[in-house]
């Protein structure tokens, strides 16, 4: 109970509420635990509840018909997921999977409606949270649709390939994301695509360039020059 209250208190959804109000809301909260890798929410299914992550991390993702996966967000403690279907009454727009063992606090859809009616202040907080989510997703849409991120990643790989005489700089996916002006999730997917296409091979901490010519061909036209051998 105390943990539940602490989590609700620290959630942006319920900031500004009194202890009595929080306690009333906490009576509507149920707890669920999942093992690592378990799919908590499946895209296309009816949503039961809004979830707060109490401990662990949850990956929210979409899967294409040909099996490609795009991570939309990593949800950490005190953050929430599954808002959209809970508020619009439609099915889950994405799936969610436990990246670690997770404990969630959930509030059922019907209870959420009652909370919003009883505590209008929460509705303002919800709008703020949803606006933040929308901003994140708009940026992701921009990355995925308008920017040729895979070309930028290819260029980074070509540019930072060790010359053979000395080790080249070592880059994290976060470094590459910062260089390409995109999100780490998009870099991760780009690397997977390049590997699937046979242009690179991921070998533990090494990225092996298998086909420089192919990488050169997909370098974004935004860049003036291609990276040449030598």
């Amino acid at each position: 109970m105390a943990l539940k209250l602490e989590l609700l208190k620290s959630s942006p959804y319920f900031s500004g509420l009194s202890s009595i109000e929080l306690e009333a809301i906490s009576r509507l909260v149920f707890e669920k635990s999942y093992g690592q890798g378990v799919v908590i929410v499946l895209e296309g299914e009816v949503a039961e509840a809004l979830y707060f992550v109490a401990s662990g991390a949850v990956k929210v993702f979409k899967t294409s018909v040909d099996g490609k996966e795009q991570t939309l967000a990593v949800i950490r403690p005190q953050e929430t997921f599954n808002e959209v279907p809970v508020f619009d009454g439609d099915v889950n727009p994405a799936s969610a999977q436990a990246m670690t063992p997770v404990t969630l606090y959930g509030i059922r859809r019907s209870d959420i409606e009652n909370i919003l009616r009883s505590y209008p202040y929460v509705a303002i907080n919800v709008i703020k949270v949803m606006a933040g989510r929308l901003r994140h997703l708009v940026a992701l849409v921009e990355d995925l649709s308008f920017r040729h991120v895979i070309g930028r990643v290819a260029r980074i790989l070509l540019e930072y390939t060790a010359d053979g005489a000395s080790p080249g700089p070592r880059l994290t996916q976060r470094d590459m994301a910062a260089m390409a002006g995109t999100a780490r999730e998009v870099v991760s997917r780009s690397l997977k695509t390049l590997e699937k296409d046979g242009f690179i091979k991921m070998d533990r901490h090494r990225i092996i360039i298998k086909d420089r010519e192919a990488l050169n061909n997909i370098v974004s036209p935004l860049f003036e020059t291609k990276v040449t051998d030598g």
Binding site: R76, T100, G168, T172, R174, K201, H205, I209
Partner: peptide, 23 residues
């Protein structure tokens, strides 16, 4: 080197850097 630790780390304290080499 699955890099999941880097992906979940919100404080940026874990890095899984890659060396990029030719075949």
């Amino acid at each position: 080197w699955c890099t999941q630790c880097e992906a979940v780390c919100d404080s940026g304290s874990i890095s899984c850097p890659f060396e990029i080499v030719r075949e």
